[in-house]
């Protein structure tokens, strides 16, 4: 089995509805791996199992030798997995900076007494977190929005803020759920560059669910196509797009 990340014989059902059926795939370190498929294919469900929002009915998710399905939901980030959501889950009443700093929550910042007394070790940890957050702000051009409340930001910016918060957790594996949906062409182009930076400069492995085939073709090293909860094809973007089962799934024949 693969050393970095593998989904093994995953099953997820809600009553009689099978969201995922016997799904297996593996992702190599440093790869950008895309999951495509028609609506309802189970793509987001895969993310929800990996991040422990749902318990799988059967199967495992193995990340760097650990079975993630045995990990508590709030511990997922400590294993180095971060994600974004299709519908954007941010702290709406907080500023962009505060959202990103919350991404740093998993790193030690001293005990509660030290925090209330603002002891030197706490100050150093806070400065370190702030510096890492500033790196992310610079990478994703969020400086103009640093102190803006999330609730007032346009959709495209919020998507970037969510990506930034995920990066602030310093993940090894980043899950992007439809990162390009709702973005204008210019924003989508920026996103393609950023995914490239995330892969090459930050060395983070990316799994993304995406409908925008031009982004998938540009950014992804390998593509998995799902339909009705099952994997129907894996390979390069061109291979998957030409696969007869994929064509059938999309055209509904």
């Amino acid at each position: 089995m693969s050393g970095f990340f593998a989904v093994e014989h995953l099953e997820l059902s809600f009553g009689g509805v099978h969201a995922i059926r016997d799904l297996s795939f593996s992702v190599e370190q440093g790869e950008v791996f895309a999951i495509i498929g028609p609506n309802g294919a189970g793509k987001t469900s895969v993310f929800n199992v990996i991040t422990r929002v749902f318990d799988p009915s059967a199967g495992r998710v193995v990340f760097q030798g650990n079975d993630i399905t045995a990990v508590a939901r709030h511990q997922v980030v400590n294993h180095g997995i971060a994600r974004t959501f299709q519908n954007i889950e941010l702290f709406e009443g907080a500023t962009v900076l505060q959202n990103l700093l919350l991404g740093r929550h998993r790193f030690p910042h001293g005990n509660i007494l030290a925090q209330l007394c603002w002891l030197p070790n706490v100050r150093r940890a806070e400065e370190e977190s702030r510096a890492r957050v500033e790196d992310v702000i610079e990478l994703l051009d969020l400086a103009p929005y640093r102190n803006a409340l999330v609730a007032g930001l346009p959709y495209g910016v919020r998507k970037v803020v969510e990506l930034a918060r995920a990066l602030a957790t310093q993940p090894k594996l980043l899950l992007l759920d439809e990162p390009a949906s709702g973005l204008n062409p210019e924003e989508a182009r920026d996103l393609a560059f950023w995914i490239d930076d995330i892969k090459h400069d930050l060395g983070i492995t990316v799994i993304m669910v995406e409908h925008d085939m031009s982004l998938v073709a540009e950014a992804a090293d390998r593509v998995l196509c799902m339909n009705m909860g099952e994997a129907i094809a894996t390979g390069s973007a061109a291979e998957v797009r030409a696969h007869p089962d994929v064509l059938a799934a999309y055209l509904g024949t």
Binding site: T51, R52, V53, A72, R73, H74, Q75, V76, V77, N78, A82, R83, F85, E89, L90, F91, E92, G93, A94, L102, G103, H105, R106, H109, I112, Q115, L116, W118, R165, T169
Partner: peptide
Amino acid sequence: AFLRFSSLGISIQAASQNQLAAYLCGIPV
């Protein structure tokens, strides 16, 4: 002071705004 300056207090505020996001930032909601 607790809610404003301690990470536990800030986590409580964060979890009250968005539980899912709080979980995935490592907060035991």
